[in-house]
């Protein structure tokens, strides 16, 4: 059974072209899944459809094995949602927000209170429990929405850009918290983000969507494997002279000369770094340091969301 299963889901907003076009996607139970795509790709629309806030034009959605149209109550109970936009009642206290949300899932107040205490503590919000939401900072509201999404103890948690506008320290807190949920409570977590280091740190599987179409899914390794090559920036010990430059150009790498002592090498997939170093050694070039031009996931992301990819 899959935690989330979308089959041929499409969405057309009023008087618009398709925001989602025939998206099929499966997320395994217990996975930590990243749902990526540029602005306007259709991530929030997809999440809206899963959380029954957006009406789909076509397709089928299953949550925790339950069809959202046929078995909406069971399907909805499986899901916790942290939306992209704040949707809190600003005149309620933090505790009231949590207890009311639990109530809408039929969770008794005493149970909700215990869970609220647990999650507010873990998210460092316990001291704010009696404060009205309007007095909270953006980062606090974000964390309150995370606690709210967990208050009915759902096996699946979807977070739409949970770390947008959150400072470095709090971002780490949220990361550790989510990792803990995935590891210790075996919750399936799906998140969207524009920070790819977050994906690298947290996620096992990834789906990339662009202009309403799914362009790639797989593990992080599989994603990186789909790259035609990898670019590195090499700093050399000595200044390059023209004859050496000419010789470098004859090698089977794409090389760009950046500064006197730096080059960018695009290494195609079938070649390895040791090939490169052997060739550079033969030209008597010593490499002082080397770094990836972009992080690989970032490269994969940019590659797959380029105009014309897949067509």
């Amino acid at each position: 059974m899959y935690a989330i299963e979308l089959s041929h889901v499409s969405k057309k907003y009023k008087s618009q072209t398709y925001a989602l076009k025939d998206v099929s996607l499966k997320v395994e139970e217990g996975d930590f899944f990243a749902f990526l795509g540029p602005n306007g790709a259709g991530k929030s629309t997809t999440i809206g459809i899963i959380s029954s806030l957006v009406v789909k034009t076509a397709g089928q959605v299953k949550i925790g094995g339950y069809d959202l149209d046929e078995d909406p109550i069971k399907a909805k109970k499986c899901l916790g949602l942290v939306p992209q936009e704040f949707n809190l009642n600003v005149f309620e206290s933090c505790l009231a927000v949590l207890i009311n949300q639990a109530g809408y899932y039929g969770v008794a107040k005493s149970v909700a209170y215990e869970r609220a205490e647990k999650y507010l503590n873990l998210l460092m919000l316990w001291s704010e429990r009696n404060h009205q939401v309007r007095t909270l900072s953006g980062g606090m509201k974000r964390r309150l929405m995370i606690a709210r999404a967990l208050i009915h103890n759902p096996p699946i948690l979807i977070l739409d850009e949970p770390t947008a506008g959150v400072d470095v320290e709090l971002r780490k807190l949220i990361w550790n918290f989510l990792e803990g949920l995935n590891r210790d409570e075996k919750k399936t977590i799906i998140l969207t983000t524009h920070y790819l280091e977050e994906v690298e740190r947290l996620c096992h599987h990834v789906a990339i969507i662009n202009k309403g179409k799914l362009v790639s899914t797989g593990s992080l390794a599989e994603l990186v494997n789909q790259l035609p090559g990898q670019s590195y920036i090499l700093s050399l010990e000595e200044v390059l002279n023209n004859p050496t430059k000419e010789k470098l150009k004859t090698l089977s790498y794409e090389i760009k000369f950046l500064e006197e002592k730096a080059i960018e090498v695009n290494l195609l997939k079938h070649l390895s770094l040791s090939d490169l170093f052997k060739d550079l050694g033969q030209l008597d070039l010593k490499v002082k340091s080397m770094r990836e031009k972009e992080n690989q996931i970032e490269q994969a992301f940019l590659h797959m969301t380029k105009e014309g990819y897949l067509s």
Binding site: L53, K77, N87, N89, Y104, G106, H152
Partner: peptide
């Protein structure tokens, strides 16, 4: 948008 708390719930 706090109505969404009700809409996503069962």
């Amino acid at each position: 948008r706090s109505i969404e708390e009700l809409l996503i719930s069962p």
